[in-house]
Computed example of a mutant assay.
Amino acid sequence: MSKLPIYKQLKFYIKEKIDNEEYLPGEAILSERELAKKYGVNRMTVKKALQSLIEDGILYSIPGSGTFVASESKNFMIGIFDDKTFASISSRLQASGDKGFSKIINKSIYTNIKSISKKLNISIDDEIYSLVRQRLNQNSEVIALEYFYTPRKLFNDIDNFDFTRVSLYDYMQKKNLKPTSYKRKLTIEPASSTIAELMNIKPLHFVYCFEFIGYADNHQIVEYTKSYIDTSKIKFEYTISK
């Protein structure tokens, strides 16, 4: 489904497993041979993907021992937002008069991702629909990179829709499962080279990282999303009430 080079797709999959805590800091990942067999690619492709992750500081290699997940870097917590102040990126762009649009990077169906299953409050065996997309402004500048996850069983026909044209929330509203309340947090962190490349920014450039869980009216969790937003293109302001 993706137009990315194969080694970058493999890099994306490995990074996603690390982000989803399937590989923990200090834990060894599969060998080059095992990864090649698992994903049906040659070892040179695996080697290139792993080397890129090592250069990003996500993995490190010990000769004769294997390749391991690097320790997590510290992020700066700058706020936790209540569910009355949320507006989607698209809504913010429209409100500012900017006719933004989306570009799909990857869409997949997963199972056995413990951390995401836990976020969505579903069984480890339940299918998870994943959508990765760039959010661009009217000047075709990437302002955000969004990782969206939802229980596939709630939206069996979701893969039939083009979310570069159709709003995700309009689709969810049609199913009577649009999020109406949220639990979220916001951090600022330096972009890895993978995130930087997809956002057309320099590695280690600081980005906002939003994580939020969306609940429908029946209190069912219908969405877990992680969005990276370029700090140089969007400004956030908030007021703390006593």
Rank of each mutant, 00 (worst) to 15 (best):
L50M: 03
K153E: 15
N121F: 06
A95L: 15
T225G: 01
F101C: 14
G79V: 13
A49I: 06
Y39W: 14
S227T: 09
E189Q: 11
K38H: 02
F86N: 01
E21M: 14
K48I: 00
M199Y: 13
V69Y: 02
V166S: 03
S88N: 12
G40N: 02
E72H: 15
I14R: 03
I54A: 07
I89P: 03
E55M: 02
D82H: 13
E22G: 04
G26N: 12
E34H: 10
E127T: 12
S241V: 14
D230Q: 09
K233P: 10
S227I: 08
Y39I: 04
L53M: 01
G64R: 13
T239K: 15
I158Q: 00
N218S: 15
Y224F: 14
P151F: 09
I58G: 00
I62S: 05
F81A: 13
I122Q: 07
Q9Y: 03
Y110K: 14
M199V: 06
I6C: 01
V46D: 13
I188S: 08
V222R: 10
E72S: 14
L120F: 14
E146Q: 05
M77A: 08
R184H: 07
F101D: 10
R43E: 09
F212N: 03
S108G: 11
F163I: 08
L186Y: 02
S88I: 09
K74P: 00
D83Y: 14
N160E: 08
I221C: 08
N42P: 01
Y215K: 11
E189D: 03
F212Y: 15
D157N: 07
G57N: 03
S71Y: 12
C209P: 05
T194R: 04
A36Y: 01
A196K: 15
S192E: 07
D162S: 06
I104W: 09
P5R: 00
I213V: 11
G26K: 02
K114T: 14
S117I: 11
S167C: 10
I14H: 00
V69E: 02
I89G: 05
D56P: 00
H219M: 09
S232F: 13
L198T: 00
A191P: 01
Y149F: 15
Y129P: 00
P151Y: 12
L30N: 09
V222T: 15
T164N: 09
P5Q: 08
F212T: 01
L53G: 01
A28P: 02
S71N: 13
A95I: 13
F212D: 08
E223F: 06
V132A: 12
E141K: 11
D83G: 05
K175N: 02
R33D: 14
T225P: 04
Y13P: 11
I80L: 13
A28W: 06
Q173W: 01
Q94D: 06
S91C: 07
L24G: 03
T164I: 08
Y60K: 05
I78F: 05
S193A: 05
K99G: 00
L30A: 10
K242S: 06
S96T: 11
E223K: 08
D83A: 08
R33I: 12
K3D: 12
N176A: 06
V69W: 01
N75Q: 12
I122E: 11
M1Y: 09
L120G: 08
D19G: 07
D126M: 09
M77Y: 12
N156W: 13
K15Q: 10
I143C: 07
A49Y: 01
K175L: 01
L120Y: 13
S192G: 02
Y215D: 00
Y13H: 10
M199H: 15
L198M: 14
Y129R: 05
